[in-house]
Design a protein around this nucleic acid. Structure first.
Length: 455
RNA sequence: GUGGUUAUAGCUCAGUUGGUUAGAGCAUCAGAUUGUGGUUCUGAGGGUCGCCGGUUCGAGCCCGGUUAGCCACCCCA
């Protein structure tokens, strides 16, 4: 028998890890609820045409496709061979694969809204916490199965939503003690205006992909890449001027007005960003306008967000989002605009682990361990334990009569803070010993008082 | 998908130009200790050297392939 193993890029989560993940997830979910979002879940798999073509050419390649069942049916052999020929040419054929694992939560949500818009109350605010799958090659902070936590508002053009979503980022990261995070915003229309002034709208993709790398590769390489992508020196110079914009949010807005303010679309983008910034206290939210922020997903049309891990951990993006004018239009229901954000829990986990930000009590599962010191003693302990459980105290009784040494070590390993020792002597006297393993302090109390004791 | 790099005990890692029986620390288990853990001491168990093949009298070490981790590119949370 071969050694068991996991598929590339997937992980098991042991008890400690699940507790820490839940700690993060619970904070995110409760903040979503605090802002009036409602939960939604969609299936792990979608019909493949729901997903294809929504994430750009690269995205399509990273979608996990599911092989149809029954391909070995001899009656269909001829058709299947023909279909498979098409697969070899890089096409998707229903006869071979008609379903795929979901790639993100936004598109399935758009599909849901398109299917249910007639009986949803708009604006519809939903949050969704589920795994997604990408056939990417794994590396640090990149997995093939990972969780996304999304909050979206659909059916509203109000920029108030953007302001609220920015506050959610702040609230969640503050509660996680992840100070030092950075939230950057930009506007697709600002990027569009830039593209229009140099190279034309069809160069938009080339320009955004290149300038998005500024942080990583520096201005010189970005210029090289722009030239390589077919921009003239004059156009590259405008972009360089754009990339050199710096200063406070207000200063950046002014510089942007200078470069692209003449274009209607650019002006509109700048206005919207100003509005959102004006309605928040950006300095308190680590909120920074960043004209170089691009984001790959091509359905964004308005303000875009990116949350970055504290600079010292080299993780990059731990969340992102933005506004999309017409996502449900892809599914035949036009004119439902939306805006949403996403948290990448797996990356947030890695960052928190690296910065040691989990609270120590995150590991406390069982609060009290009853020692097992014999038959009569354990029967009495069991009875007491059940009463404590009724009170909501998480307890367990050691599974067999054993030496003290063993039972103490069990409690230690499981991070159980209290043990209750009830032996022959205590049984006679109707008392029990409560020992706090953190402090080493021990007290003897009448069993009758145990239920009143605070753990 | 492309390139680089790593893989030895549960964990972290040594392992000489290829040479007899592959080591250490930590962890585990047992004992010192039949009602008080964390310290200490003694002892024990634990390995198909990731997997498959090749070169060689002989491979943990060299070569090829493969799987997985990590890193870079692409892209992204």
């Amino acid at each position: 028998m071969a050694k068991p193993s996991l598929p590339q890029g997937t992980r098991d989560f042991g008890p400690d890890v699940v507790r820490k993940r839940s700690y993060i997830l619970n904070i995110i979910k409760s903040v979503f609820e605090l802002y009036g979002f409602q939960p939604l879940e969609t299936p792990a798999m979608e019909n493949i045409e729901t997903l294809m073509g929504k994430y750009g050419e690269e995205g399509d390649k990273l979608i996990f496709k599911i092989l149809n069942n029954g391909l070995d049916n001899p009656e269909k052999e001829k058709q299947i061979r023909e279909d498979f020929e098409k697969v070899l040419q890089g096409k998707n054929v229903k006869g071979i694969t008609e379903r795929a694992l979901k790639y993100d939560l936004t598109i399935p949500f758009a599909r849901y809204v398109a299917m249910n818009h007639s009986h949803l109350t708009f604006p519809f605010k939903r949050y969704q916490v589920q795994p997604v799958w990408r056939a990417d090659r794994p590396q640090k902070g990149r997995y093939r199965e990972f969780y996304q936590c999304d909050a979206d508002v659909v059916g509203s053009n109000a920029l108030l939503n953007e302001a609220e979503l920015a506050s959610i980022y702040h609230e969640v990261f503050s509660r996680l003690k992840l100070d030092g995070y950075e939230l950057r915003i930009n506007h697709r229309k600002i990027l569009t205006a830039l593209a229009k002034t140099c190279g034309g709208i069809d160069k938009m993709m080339d320009i955004t992909i290149a300038i998005d790398k500024l942080d990583k590769i520096g201005i010189i390489k970005v210029k090289e890449e722009l030239t390589q992508r077919g921009l003239t020196t004059e156009q590259v110079n405008i972009i360089e001027k754009y990339l050199n914009i710096n200063g406070t949010n207000d200063e950046i807005l002014n510089s942007l007005l200078e470069i692209i303010g003449k274009s209607e679309i650019g002006k509109k983008g700048i206005e919207q960003v100003s509005f959102v910034l004006a309605n928040l206290q950006p300095q308190h939210l680590n909120l920074k306008l960043d004209p170089t922020l691009a984001r790959g997903l091509n359905y964004y049309t308005g303000i875009i967000f990116e949350a970055k891990a504290p600079a010292e951990v080299k993780m990059g993006s731990i969340g992102g989002g933005g506004r999309y004018d017409d996502l449900t239009g892809l599914f035949g229901v036009p004119n439902i605009p939306g805006v949403g954000i996403s948290f990448g829990v797996d990356r947030i986990y890695d960052v928190m682990e690296e910065l040691n930000l989990f609270p120590p009590d995150v590991h406390i599962g069982t609060q009290v361990l009853f020692f097992n010191l014999g038959e009569a003693e354990s029967t009495a302990s069991f009875f007491l334990m059940q009463q404590l459980r009724q009170k909501g105290v998480r307890c367990e009784l050691y599974h067999e009569s054993a030496k003290f040494d063993k039972q103490f070590k069990y409690a230690e390993k499981k991070n159980i803070p209290f043990v209750i020792i009830l032996g022959e002597k205590e049984l006679k006297e109707s008392t029990c010993n409560i020992k706090n393993l953190t402090t080493g302090m021990q007290q003897t109390i009448p069993t009758a008082d145990l239920l009143k004791h605070q753990f």
